[in-house]
Amino acid sequence: RNRTTFTSYQLEELEKVFQKTHYPDVYAREQLAMRTDLTEARVQVWFQNRRAKWRK
């Protein structure tokens, strides 16, 4: 699989949710996936990576 390149809009939306919660539930991830036109799996992985970056 190729690396996903996120648009500025997608990143904005993802970051907005990340500010509210670092662990969005499956419903929140589904909503976000629909809004950003990404798969729920991509959203889930983005949050995993974002949490790792945040911990550093």
Rank of each mutant, 00 (worst) to 15 (best):
32 L>T: 03
16 K>W: 05
16 K>P: 02
31 Q>E: 10
26 V>G: 15
21 T>I: 07
54 W>C: 08
15 E>F: 02
12 E>V: 03
36 T>E: 01
6 F>K: 04
9 Y>R: 12
16 K>F: 11
30 E>T: 15
14 L>E: 00
49 N>S: 12
16 K>Y: 03
23 Y>E: 07
24 P>T: 01
40 E>S: 12
37 D>W: 05
22 H>V: 06
8 S>A: 12
40 E>F: 08
7 T>W: 08
56 K>D: 11
25 D>Q: 03
33 A>C: 09
40 E>Y: 03
37 D>L: 06
34 M>W: 11
35 R>E: 05
18 F>R: 01
15 E>D: 03
55 R>P: 08
8 S>M: 09
10 Q>C: 03
45 V>F: 15
14 L>V: 02
31 Q>L: 09
44 Q>D: 14
53 K>Y: 08
55 R>Y: 13
7 T>V: 04
45 V>W: 11
28 A>K: 04
13 E>H: 01
25 D>M: 04
5 T>A: 10
9 Y>W: 07
10 Q>A: 05
23 Y>C: 08
1 R>K: 14
42 R>W: 09
28 A>H: 05
14 L>G: 00
30 E>F: 07
7 T>M: 09
16 K>C: 09
42 R>Y: 06
28 A>Q: 10
31 Q>W: 06
54 W>F: 11
9 Y>I: 15
52 A>L: 07
37 D>Q: 09
52 A>F: 03
32 L>I: 09
46 W>K: 03
25 D>C: 05
50 R>T: 05
5 T>N: 14
11 L>T: 06
46 W>G: 01
5 T>S: 14
15 E>Y: 01
41 A>F: 07
17 V>A: 14
19 Q>F: 10
34 M>S: 12
14 L>A: 02
8 S>L: 09
56 K>M: 07
43 V>A: 02
33 A>T: 05
49 N>R: 05
43 V>T: 03
2 N>T: 05
55 R>A: 13
34 M>R: 15
51 R>W: 03
55 R>Q: 09
18 F>W: 09
11 L>R: 07
19 Q>H: 11
36 T>K: 02
1 R>T: 15
1 R>M: 05
30 E>S: 10
30 E>G: 05
21 T>H: 14
55 R>E: 11
13 E>F: 03
3 R>W: 12
41 A>M: 13
52 A>V: 11
52 A>E: 15
54 W>P: 10
56 K>E: 08
5 T>F: 09
27 Y>P: 13
33 A>D: 02
56 K>Q: 14
8 S>H: 07
18 F>L: 03
31 Q>F: 04
13 E>W: 04
23 Y>N: 13
21 T>M: 05
19 Q>T: 13
36 T>D: 01
31 Q>A: 12
55 R>D: 10
26 V>T: 08
12 E>A: 11
10 Q>G: 03
14 L>T: 00
40 E>W: 03
33 A>Q: 06
12 E>M: 03
32 L>D: 01
14 L>K: 00
33 A>L: 08
36 T>H: 06
45 V>K: 09
47 F>M: 09
2 N>K: 05
31 Q>C: 12
5 T>K: 10
44 Q>A: 12
7 T>S: 09
10 Q>R: 02
26 V>N: 14
53 K>Q: 10
49 N>G: 10
41 A>I: 08
29 R>M: 15
33 A>E: 04
46 W>Q: 00
55 R>L: 14
10 Q>M: 03
53 K>R: 11
44 Q>T: 12
55 R>T: 10
49 N>W: 06
11 L>Y: 10
35 R>V: 07
38 L>I: 15
48 Q>T: 09
32 L>K: 00
23 Y>K: 05
22 H>G: 04
21 T>E: 13
35 R>Y: 02
32 L>P: 00
27 Y>M: 07
49 N>Y: 09
27 Y>N: 12
50 R>Y: 02
44 Q>G: 13
17 V>G: 07
34 M>Y: 04
12 E>P: 01
2 N>I: 12
16 K>A: 10
35 R>P: 02
10 Q>Y: 00
16 K>H: 06
56 K>S: 13
53 K>H: 14
24 P>E: 00
20 K>R: 10
53 K>G: 13
41 A>G: 09
56 K>W: 10
31 Q>I: 06
13 E>A: 09
14 L>M: 12
24 P>H: 01
18 F>C: 00
55 R>K: 06
22 H>C: 08
3 R>L: 14
47 F>R: 00
44 Q>C: 15
46 W>V: 00
15 E>V: 02
53 K>E: 15
51 R>A: 01
28 A>D: 10
31 Q>D: 06
6 F>Y: 15
6 F>Q: 06
34 M>K: 14
3 R>A: 06
54 W>I: 14
35 R>G: 04
